[in-house]
Simulated assay, not measured.
Amino acid sequence: MTTTTQHRRSEGTLAVAGGLTAFAAVMLVMSGMLDIFRGIMAIADDAIYLSTPNYVFKFDLTSWGWIHLALGLLAMAVGIGLVMGATWARAVGVGVAGLLIIANFLDIPYAPFWSVTLIALYAFIIWALCVVRPDSETY
């Protein structure tokens, strides 16, 4: 009787772990798409964003656009790899989410609320990808 209860608990934990990976994959695809749009907006018209004259990490907004476009495409590719169950996608997903946290941190003066929101989302994606064990049956 005791082993049945423990077995059910582990099945529930595995279901949650699979759900976290699926959530991280969907969030990477969606946020990657939004970063692509954000990059296109910055490349096409610099007047959309607020400009800060005395920013230490000052880049041209077109450069920020290309950075967000490239990272958004990479995030979408990794998210699709996670959906397909690729083994490389978890490690690369953590790395891409970390790069996106850094890019959004450096982009705070141009879009403060959106950057802080994405930093929190990417931190959750990193947590979701790190907490799942790849040897689980539902992965």
Rank of each mutant, 00 (worst) to 15 (best):
S115E: 15
M1K: 00
R133L: 14
F57Y: 14
Y110F: 15
I119Q: 06
I48C: 03
E137P: 03
A77T: 13
V94G: 10
V83C: 11
A89M: 14
G12S: 06
M76D: 01
Y55G: 04
L74A: 10
A24M: 10
G18Y: 02
T2I: 12
T3L: 05
T21H: 01
Y55Q: 10
N54H: 13
R9V: 15
D135H: 14
A123P: 06
A111E: 10
A25L: 02
V83A: 10
P53Q: 11
V94C: 13
M1S: 13
G72S: 06
F113S: 10
D135I: 04
M41Y: 11
I43P: 01
L100F: 00
L69F: 15
P112E: 12
W64L: 00
E137N: 14
T62Y: 10
W66C: 02
M27R: 05
S10Y: 13
T21Y: 00
A111M: 15
E11Q: 08
G79A: 02
T3R: 08
S51Q: 13
N104F: 05
W88P: 03
I36L: 11
L121P: 03
T52W: 14
D60L: 01
A111Y: 07
M1T: 04
Y110D: 07
D46Y: 12
N104H: 10
I36C: 15
T13Y: 07
